[in-house]
């Protein structure tokens, strides 16, 4: 009989302290109260103890209540922050291509030492100069070869072939060509 009666409220004693609910505290106080009642039937010195135990159980109730509420609050707070973070992350990843920067623009990382930083015009000029110097070197090498082999008499430079006119800019190219040609011929 006893065993059967105690089985359900007494289970609260076996629970993990952090899992306790207020209902469990009521179960505990029920069991403790019942046990106290049995003792008080035999003597009367237990009444003071009984009040203290009730007081402790009340404090226990408050603490469990408070703990569970705080836990619930923190869980809600955490979930809110999580969804906020997700929102910010997706916004920044999609926003980079669509809203903050136009469709045909790109983001340049200014701390990247290998970032693009010269204009097409600058590259064009550098390449033109490189190719011009290369052509001049070839001409010089060719002339040197001729001087070395004794084919060319000193002081008579007939081999000026700087023909590396700037890339044809339509009309300007022909004039450029002609100009260079004249200087070549002039040296003959």
């Amino acid at each position: 009989m006893d065993f059967h009666e105690e089985s359900s409220p007494a289970l609260a004693f076996e629970k993990d302290a952090f899992e306790l609910t207020v209902e469990d505290v009521y179960d505990i106080s029920y069991v403790v109260g019942r046990d106290l009642l049995r003792i008080s039937r035999t003597g009367e010195e237990v009444s003071d103890l009984q009040f203290r135990i009730v007081r402790v159980l009340e404090m226990f109730e408050t603490m469990v209540n408070k703990y569970n509420l705080s836990l619930e609050e923190l869980k809600m707070e955490r979930d809110n922050l999580k969804s906020e973070l997700d929102r910010v992350v997706t916004e920044s990843s999609t926003g980079q291509e669509t809203q903050a920067v136009g469709a045909n623009q790109m983001v340049v990382d200014l701390s990247d030492p290998n970032r693009p930083r010269f204009t097409m015009q600058e590259l064009k000029e550098v390449l033109q100069e490189r190719n011009q110097l290369k052509a001049q070197l070839m001409v010089a090498q060719e002339e040197l070869q001729l001087y070395k082999s004794g084919i060319l008499p000193q002081g008579k430079s007939a081999m000026v072939e700087v023909d590396l006119d700037a890339p044809a800019q339509n009309g300007a190219a022909a004039i450029n060509d002609a100009k260079e040609e004249k200087t070549t011929i002039g040296k003959l």
Binding site: M120, L123, E161, D163, L164, P167, A168, Q169, N170, A173
Partner: peptide, 24 residues
Amino acid sequence: IKLQIWDTAGQERFHTITTSYYRG
């Protein structure tokens, strides 16, 4: 016959530079 052979970059990003050499 002296052949001066221009070698262009195939990459699209150099397009404006390379096309200016077509004319000659």
